[in-house]
Amino acid sequence: MPVRTTARRLRDSRRADRRFGARLLGAAAVAAVAAVPFALVLVLVEGHWQPLRRLDASAAMRLHRTALEHPAWTDTLRILSDWVWDPAVLRSLVAVLTLWLLWKRAWRLACWSAVTAVAGALTGMLVKSVVERARPSLEDPVAHAPGFSFPSGHAMTATTSCAVLLLVLLPMVPRAWRPVCWGVAVLSVLGVGFTRVALGVHWFSDVVGGWLLGAAVVALTGWAFEAWRTDVGRRRTELGEGLEPELTGAEPERQEA
């Protein structure tokens, strides 16, 4: 009997080592896939790559002309950018969600939500202060924004916040309605970026940088949460079912620790 127990422990240890190695490789792949595109955009921005500068300038001028010619359209963009998709509004939603998760005793999911939001905000501010890219300077501007331009804080916050809300709340949505939730989240993230360029307060590459950096933060924190699920013996989840499918009828996490 002791021999069998020792052999079983050895097999379990080898399986754990293989899982650990797989997670390390997976983490490296996630980091590369998520961060490399942002790093490429950053290099092109810092290197003043002419094709990117022409694309930025062309998008800015075309959308600016449209904004000047259609005041009602511009007012709608301001409402969407400054009220509906404002970073303070989105972060407040994530904060309320985090408090609700704490009330549900979903400690680790609440921690993931808070860390993802805070890490996204701090990372965005750090990159802005390092790059120090100036915002577009247009004649007869229709909107103004303080601070540096790259990456777009609105785009990055929308990416991280919509991802947190979606990945946490998705298990409580009927499967038939989940594609709608994904559509709303994607539309919100794309819409934020469009409003910032159309209002002339960001270059197109600022918005792309914000999307990519936000996605990198979510990918890395999401991978950490998935690694915890594996460590405690829970099954791996699919992207379409959220981070914690058990949340709808889960027992308090303190019983699993």
Rank of each mutant, 00 (worst) to 15 (best):
R14S: 04
G242Q: 07
W100A: 01
S188F: 03
W49Y: 10
A257E: 06
A32M: 07
A119W: 08
G47Q: 02
A145D: 00
R254D: 13
L109E: 10
L170G: 08
L247Y: 15
G191C: 06
P252E: 06
R236N: 14
V118Y: 08
M61F: 00
L102A: 03
A219V: 13
C181K: 04
A121I: 01
L44G: 00
W211F: 09
A67L: 06
F225S: 04
M1F: 12
P179F: 00
R53A: 03
F204E: 05
W107K: 00
F194V: 13
L213K: 02
A145F: 01
E139C: 03
A216S: 13
G249Y: 15
Q255D: 02
H144L: 07
V96P: 09
P37I: 05
L80M: 07
V201A: 02
D12M: 12
R91L: 13
L167N: 00
A219Y: 11
A114T: 12
L247N: 15
E132S: 12
R175G: 13
S58L: 04
A34Q: 00
S81H: 08
D86P: 11
G214P: 15
V218N: 13
T74M: 09
V89D: 08
D56V: 08
P2I: 10
R108D: 09
C111M: 09
A257N: 02
F20V: 10
A176T: 11
A110D: 08
P245A: 15
V192I: 10
K128D: 05
M156P: 05
S149A: 10
L212C: 01
S205T: 15
V186P: 08
F38V: 03
F20I: 06
A227V: 03
P2C: 08
V189C: 06
S81T: 12
L167Q: 04
V208F: 06
S149W: 13
G240A: 09
L167P: 03
G240W: 06
V192G: 06
E69D: 13
V45A: 05
R65S: 00
G47F: 03
R133M: 09
V43N: 07
L24E: 14
L187F: 13
S152T: 08
S13W: 07
H144T: 06
A59S: 11
L101E: 01
V84W: 05
S149C: 12
T157K: 10
V30Q: 02
S81E: 10
A250E: 14
V45F: 02
G214N: 10
A143G: 03
F194L: 06
R254C: 09
I79Y: 08
S58A: 14
S161P: 09
M156D: 07
G214D: 07
R235E: 15
L187A: 15
A224N: 05
G21C: 10
R105L: 07
P245K: 12
L93F: 08
L80Q: 04
A250S: 15
L126S: 11
W211K: 00
V84F: 06
V189M: 09
A57P: 03
P2S: 10
L99W: 01
M125N: 15
A250R: 14
A34R: 00
E246M: 11
A60H: 02
D86H: 14
